[in-house]
């Protein structure tokens, strides 16, 4: 099975402090979809990935296939399996289309 791998040319950083604040906000019932936990710097432009997107990005290190990635995510996010699978596949397709990810 092919394994997703982040584009190694992309500079990125996991913002742990922000993530902690976002998790607290999520527990309070606030909307956190637009708040970034991972920032990417691509061609001088800054992009951010939210909690779920950042988690997927962090897992795309070429060591696991998509099913393995979904397994890893399922441990951390309480969401219907079908919905999770669809979201992950859509997100990976978007990253691939942007050239931010490939398969090895």
């Amino acid at each position: 099975m092919k394994r997703p791998l982040r584009n190694p040319q992309i500079v990125w950083r996991h913002e742990k402090r922000r993530e902690e604040e976002i998790l607290k906000a999520q527990e309070r019932g606030e909307a956190v979809e637009d708040r970034g936990t991972v920032i990417l710097i691509i061609s001088g432009m800054m992009h951010q990935l939210n909690l779920v997107g950042g988690h997927i990005w962090s897992l795309c290190d070429g060591s696991r296939d998509v099913d393995g990635l979904i397994e890893a995510l399922a441990e951390d996010f309480e969401v219907e399996r079908e919905e999770l699978v669809e979201d992950v596949r859509d997100f990976l397709a978007d990253l691939e289309q942007r050239g931010w990810l490939s398969y090895v």
Partner: peptide, 14 residues
């Protein structure tokens, strides 16, 4: 990005 203090990055990018 929200300008809230809690959303501050952990360090500058540059």
């Amino acid at each position: 990005m929200s300008e809230a203090f809690t959303d501050l990055f952990s360090a500058p990018l540059t």
